[in-house]
């Protein structure tokens, strides 16, 4: 089942093209991460999906329905990139108002329960004008989930939060996925995206330049990998022969008494190195392969 589908979606402000043709399919139950530098078009994409902005051309469907339909809006939860609230309302008042507006009214107890889930349970009665930036972020997530939506759009949900809150929110996102919800999120925190997203798209200048699971992205960018091995001592003569052979197998070779590090171009080479060491009567105690991180992929993309 497809949760979000876009077809050549474009957006321009005057002569400036912000989205240059986004075609994307996101399945139900995914945690989809959207990455890109500032101004890449991530928030514009979310704004179009959620009815905040209109596309210049192209089409999209959300939960099987095209365009900004009221019935669809009731099934989605949105945490916009920039959240300000009604200053004179408390968190509970906000949630009650927004849940009423979404057509799925929540009781006071339900609101407090949701506020607990985002870590705001100690501030439920406080007016939001007294909220810190981080507390507003949490309330932004709470209002997005108060009406139990099927699909969530979270624009940088953890930016500006302390480490403890980040972990808390990440756990919440996982638990929402377990409940069968689809989550579309943007983030600048590459570690976070790598940790929690099932699929990732990297955007640059209004275009998706790479999209796939973390494994797919890594295999695409896995042109080189650093292999580190721990092994038994090597005799001086064997060491020279092995060194000669290893120089042909990879680059950046560093050999120490009982360890070596080498950069290779494929996984096959790792097996070949282990075989070569075994043939030289050297036991391999451990192998560590440093794969490209999302950060490497992002920088390379």
């Amino acid at each position: 089942m497809i949760a979000i589908e876009t077809n050549d979606l474009k957006k321009a402000y005057g002569k400036t093209a912000v989205l240059k043709g986004i075609s994307l399919q996101i399945k139900k139950g995914e945690i989809f991460g959207f990455l890109g530098r500032n101004g890449a078009g991530k928030s514009t994409f979310i704004n179009i999906m959620t009815g905040i902005a209109n596309q210049s051309s192209g089409s999209f469907s959300i939960l099987g329905a095209g365009g900004h339909r009221n019935e669809t809006k009731k099934k989605i939860g949105v945490m916009p990139d920039y959240s300000t609230f009604y200053e004179n309302l408390s968190a509970v008042d906000h949630l009650r108002f927004f849940s009423d507006l979404s057509g799925n009214p929540a009781s006071k107890e339900q609101c407090i329960e949701v506020l607990k889930s985002v870590g705001l349970h100690e501030h439920v009665r406080k007016k939001t004008k007294k909220y810190s930036f981080g507390m507003k972020k949490k309330l932004g997530i709470a209002q997005a989930i108060i009406h139990d939506p099927e699909l969530l759009f979270l624009d940088e949900p953890t930016s500006g939060l302390d480490a403890e809150s980040v972990i808390h929110i990440q756990k919440l996102i996982f638990s929402l996925q377990k409940q069968g919800k689809t989550i579309f999120m943007t983030s600048h925190n590459l570690d976070e995206v790598e940790k929690i997203c099932t699929r990732v798209a990297i955007m640059r200048e209004g275009l998706i330049i790479k999209c796939g699971t973390m494994d797919e992205l890594k295999s695409f960018y896995r042109s080189t990998m650093i292999v580190k091995m721990k092994h038994s001592p090597i005799s001086p003569s064997g060491r020279e022969t092995l060194k000669k052979w290893l120089k042909g197998a990879g680059t950046d070779l560093i050999m120490k008494d009982q360890s070596l590090s080498i950069t290779v171009s494929s996984e096959k080479k790792i097996a070949e190195i282990i075989r070569a060491l075994n043939q030289s009567k050297v036991d391999v105690y451990g192998v560590h392969v440093e794969e490209p991180s999302l950060q490497d992929i992002f920088m390379e993309a």
Partner: peptide, 16 residues
């Protein structure tokens, strides 16, 4: 101006 409208437009139609 204060962008609270975003919480409304993502939940209901602009005409509403």
């Amino acid at each position: 101006h204060e962008r609270t409208i975003r919480f409304l437009v993502t939940r209901t139609s602009k005409s509403s």
